[in-house]
Design a protein around this nucleic acid. Structure first.
Length: 100
DNA sequence: GACTTGACCGGTC
DNA sequence: CGACCGGCCAAGT
């Protein structure tokens, strides 16, 4: 397979790290902005190498993070001013506009 | 090298 | 709104 290049990983890491406090971004947005082939790859990167990243600012397009992280992630976001409504974040309000 | 797993997405029913 | 499906891509077994 064609492993993700370090550049791609760095691009994703940079984008995630660049998300300002109080804002969130979807996996798909990051994938597109970083030039990755699919949003799944972003999820893979988060899973493997998210130690030094604000991964909690990355959520699914549904406005709701993965089940196992939802509670904790929403709590972390809440401390930054991102108020989740009924377990999901209103993307139309908090979605950060990535570099166009 | 085939099969499964997983922090996804969009469309359809 | 919830469930199912196909597509997507990398890693682990």
């Amino acid at each position: 397979m064609a492993p993700v290049t370090d550049e791609q990983v760095e691009a994703v890491r940079a984008l995630v790290a660049a998300i300002p406090s109080g804002r969130v971004v979807t996996y798909g947005d990051i994938a597109a902005a970083a030039g990755l082939s699919s949003a799944r790859t972003v999820g893979w990167i988060m899973r493997t190498d998210s130690a030094d990243l604000p991964w909690y600012r990355v959520i699914a397009a549904s406005g709701r993070p993965a089940p196992h992280l939802a509670a904790r992630q929403l709590e972390l976001l809440r401390t930054e001013g991102v108020l989740a409504v009924d377990g999901r974040v209103p993307l139309r309000v908090y979605r950060h506009r990535l570099e166009i």
